[in-house]
Amino acid sequence: MENYYPTPEMLEEFAAHLAQEEKSVHTVEKYMRDIRKFIVFLGDREITKELAIAYKKNLAEQYAASSVNSMLASFNQFMEFAGWRQFKVRQIKVQRRLYCAEEKELTKEEYYRLVRAAGELNKDRLGLIIQTICSTGIRVSELVFITVNSVQSGIANVECKGKSRQVFLPQKLRILLRKYVRQKSIRRGPVFVTREGKPVNRSNVWKEMKDLCRHANVSGMKVFPHNLRHLFARTYYKMEKDISKLADLLGHSSINTTRIYIITSGNEHRRQIERMRLIL
C-alpha cells in the first residue's frame, strides 16, 4: 500500500525537475518555498484529500485570494509530479479587478519625483535603473541584458522564462547610458553593476528605491521595481490600445497576464463613468 509522505528526496527531485523545465531560479525558489509551507502544515501526518482541502482553507484565512492561488499552483504541480493527482485542489475563483487601489498605483508625476530625487542625492545608477525599467518595460531581473553593446545598438536581446525578445532602448535613454558608461569606464558587459562588478539584483534595487521614498515624497507602498513595469504598460496602452503588442513587449505568454498590468486606478474609473453622461 502506497504511503503519501513527501520526503526530502522527493523535494530535491522536484527542484531538479523544475530546473529541467527551464524555470527561472526565482521561480524554483518560489515553488520550493510554497511546498515547504505545506509540509510544515502537514507535520507528521500522511497526505489526504481532506488535509489538502484544510490546507487550502488555512491559506485563505491568512492571505489574499491571488496569493492563495499562487501557492496552490505550486502545491498542485508538486502533486502532479509525485503522481498524487487525487490530492490536487481547485483554486479560488477570483473576479477580475476593474481597477487597482489608488494607494498602490505609481503615477507618472511620482515617477518623475523619484528620478529627480535620485539625481539630487547623486544616485546616478539608481536614477538610470528607474528610467530604464520604466521606459522599456523590462523586469528588474532583465537589467543584466542592458549591456554596453545594447546601448550602442539600441536593442537589448532579453532572455527570460525560456523566451527571447528584442527590447528597443529610447534614444534619450541611450544618450544618458552612454554618458554613464563613459564616466564609470564600463567597456563591456552589463551596464548596471555593483562596486564588486557584479550585476545588480532585485534586492539591491528594491532597497535603494525604498530609501528614495521620503526624499521624493512618494508612498513606500508604491515604490518597487515591478510598479515601474506597470507604469510602462499603462502608459503604452493609453497611447496604442493594442494589448497583443503590449503582451509581446512585456514578454507575456498570456494576454490575461497583461490585463493585470493595464488596470487603472479607481479615480480614473470614476472619471470614465462620469464622462458617459447617462444621468439626466
Rank of each mutant, 00 (worst) to 15 (best):
D124W: 05
L177E: 00
C134R: 13
R113G: 07
E105K: 13
V158C: 11
T132H: 04
Q91K: 15
P170M: 09
N122M: 04
G162E: 08
R125A: 12
V158D: 06
E109H: 04
Q86R: 15
T132Q: 09
V181C: 01
K108E: 06
S135N: 10
R90D: 15
R174Y: 09
L98Y: 02
I175L: 12
F145G: 04
E110R: 01
Q86E: 15
Y99Q: 01
A156D: 08
C134D: 07
K179T: 08
E120R: 10
Q166T: 02
S150T: 09
V151W: 06
E120T: 02
R85M: 04
E102I: 11
A156Y: 05
A156L: 09
Q86K: 13
R90H: 14
Y99P: 00
R90C: 04
F145C: 06
Y111D: 04
Q86S: 13
L176E: 15
V167G: 12
Y112A: 05
L121S: 00
V158E: 12
K104T: 09
R113F: 08
K88G: 07
V181N: 02
L128Q: 00
E103A: 05
G119L: 05
Y112F: 11
T136C: 13
I129G: 00
V148I: 07
L121N: 00
G127E: 10
T147M: 05
T132L: 14
K93S: 13
K123F: 10
E109L: 05
V151E: 06
Q86C: 13
R165I: 04
G127R: 01
R174M: 14
K104D: 11
